[in-house]
Amino acid sequence: MNFVIAFPGEAQPIIDFYDLQKVGKQPFPYYQIDNHKLVISGMGRERTAQAVNYLKNESSTPNQAWINLGIAGHGSLEIGQPFLAGKIEDDLSENCFYPPQIYDHTFPVTCLKTCSQPCSFYEPDLGYDMEAHAFYSTVLSVSTRELVQVIKIVSDNPGSPLASFSPKEVPRLIENHLETIALLVNQMEKTSLTIQLEPEISNTYEKVREIHHFSSTRSHQLHDLIRQAHALGLYLGEIESIAQSAKDGAEVISSINLWMGPSRQFR
């Protein structure tokens, strides 16, 4: 999971919960353990977009899971209530995002508006933050929309406006919901794995390419054939043997095709 969080007070409960270790300070405080990563972006769109780009550069695997977590104002929900953004608007843009809601959870789903300034006017059924829209639009180049979600916890509402909110309360607001957040994190990570290509396919592909030279067209063909062989339940080790005994890339392709032929019929 990639967490992008604006403030240290919002991040600390997650850092503690997952036992994340600080691995960098510049340009953003950066924490990690295993496949969990977290950056503290600072406030606002620009810092958020920069933090997302920074985290994108830390890994080349596409379609990882991403969460933007933090506090937000809300026109209807109670203080301390977490919610998921089902629609993300922006006060500077016409463009809205609709993160697809495919997970099982107990969070209410509501609209969220990213604003340039802290907001003291509340509309019913609408949340207010300063980061989500930039977060979402920046992540989209590396992850499918279902794997990008925004969770906010209500810090202020019409009955208890932002002016009366103390930042000291932030960690407690987040801590109260760590278990439910973790359930969502788990589902998102599992979902991300379901659309990752089997590592065995790329391993075989790389090994065969070390044996022979392949033009760009043949490289594609080779990759397709290895993927298909995997789909047909064939032993990929055989492809390496074929490559070893072939004289060039063209022969590798035709020999794999011959070998796979009889298995192609659907069962």
Binding site: L197, E198, I201, R227, Q228, A229, H230, A231, L232, G233, M260, G261, R264, Q265, F266, R267
Partner: peptide
Amino acid sequence: YPEEPLFASD
């Protein structure tokens, strides 16, 4: 669905 055998048919 890269794992779907139907798509590896002839």
